[in-house]
């Protein structure tokens, strides 16, 4: 693995990729981890895909969610193939409603599935305890090793779900912005970065395959629009945007957003992402921020690439 190098002007490179001396600005969120199991991996994936649909950004989706990892059957509560899903919202108040809606509409409806809490935390919210009313009085609770779960009768048999799901403070908005000489090269480097970032436990990448091509800035020339295209990063606007940061030899730019349950997990994910993108020929890597005035968490690329933490 290539180590980052710095010259005397504080410019950093990993292989031939320039790592800009900047930081990703991230925000406080609230997170939950849901374990979905099913008779087969395919059904667990189907439920997870449905549950994490339209969950890319809190800007319009109200939450961010994605698959964290697949879980081998020996490690799931019921011994069946499983998938871990992370789901974050901007406030503690809204997370229970999102869990109830998404599990109720996307997991309970999916054949053969069951749903378990995957986060041990001091705080928890009632999810199965609310969805049980779908059983219309025929639901049955079981208390196994101190964990209450509900058996809700459905047309296939029963839907099994934990009564409570743990929630904890989380972080949303870690990011890398990857530049490349051609679209194909940039895409390849960004996909490699996303794949490497996803391997870290406790993080997820909420956008399609982890990538965003329509990175946004705050506000717009149009009244009422809270976000608009990030013209500084659009290669087509290099000649007309006053604040373009796209070098002449760059054809495409992708952003990878990473949310996580801890700062350490996000840092490790970003570190792996930078290295993987550099291995695949990215020209430059930077990160998005708002001048440090909005988000509580600042992930500095040079420190992360060097393996240091602030």
């Amino acid at each position: 693995m290539s180590r980052p190098k710095k010259d005397d002007q504080n410019r950093m490179q990993i292989k031939k990729t320039e790592i800009q001396d900047t930081f990703a600005e991230a925000f406080e969120m609230w997170g939950a981890r849901v374990i979905i199991t099913a008779d087969t991996k395919q059904w667990a994936r189907a439920a997870a895909a449905s549950m994490t649909g339209f969950a890319t950004s809190v800007i319009r989706c109200k939450l961010e969610a994605a698959v964290e990892s697949e879980i081998p059957e020996e490690d799931t509560p019921d011994g069946r193939p499983g998938i871990s899903v992370l789901l974050f919202t901007m406030s503690q108040k809204t997370i229970a409603g999102q869990l109830i809606d998404r599990i109720g509409q996307c997991v309970m409806t999916c054949p053969t599935t069951a749903c378990f809490n995957g986060l041990e935390s001091e705080k928890s919210v009632s999810v199965g305890g609310k969805l049980r009313y779908f059983g219309d009085g025929h639901q049955i609770s079981k208390l196994i090793d101190g964990i209450r779960s509900w058996r809700i009768p459905v047309m296939e048999g029963e839907f099994l779900i934990d009564d409570k799901f743990g929630i904890q403070p989380a972080i949303g908005g870690g990011n890398l912005i990857i530049f490349g000489p051609r679209k194909s090269t940039t895409l390849r480097a960004s996909v490699a970065a996303a794949n490497a970032m996803r391997e870290v436990a406790g993080v997820f990448l909420p956008f399609p395959q982890g990538l965003v091509r329509s990175g946004s800035k705050v506000g717009a020339k149009y009244k009422g629009l809270i976000a608009s295209t990030n013209d500084a990063y659009c290669p087509t606007l290099r000649a007309v945007s006053n604040n373009s940061v796209v070098p002449e030899n760059v054809e495409a730019v992708y952003e990878i957003v990473v949310d996580g349950l801890s700062e350490e997990a996000i840092k490790e994910s970003m570190r792996r992402g930078m290295r993987a993108a550099a291995e695949k020929g990215a020209t430059m890597i930077t990160a998005g921020n708002y001048g440090g005035n909005l988000g509580k968490f600042h992930f500095h690329l040079h420190e992360i690439a060097n393996g240091k933490s602030k």
């Binding site: 509560p77 019921d78 011994g79 069946r80 069951a114 079981k142 196994i144 090793d145 779960s149 058996r151 048999g157 029963e158 099994l160």
Partner: peptide
């Protein structure tokens, strides 16, 4: 006649509590 999923949780627990020989995969 159906497969009560919740029994898997009990049976896995019982296997860990000395009943492994009596609870076979066919029961699980």
């Amino acid at each position: 006649t159906y497969h009560p999923l919740f029994l898997r949780l009990y049976f896995r627990k019982l296997r860990e509590n000395g009943f492994r020989r009596k609870i076979q995969d066919k029961h699980l």
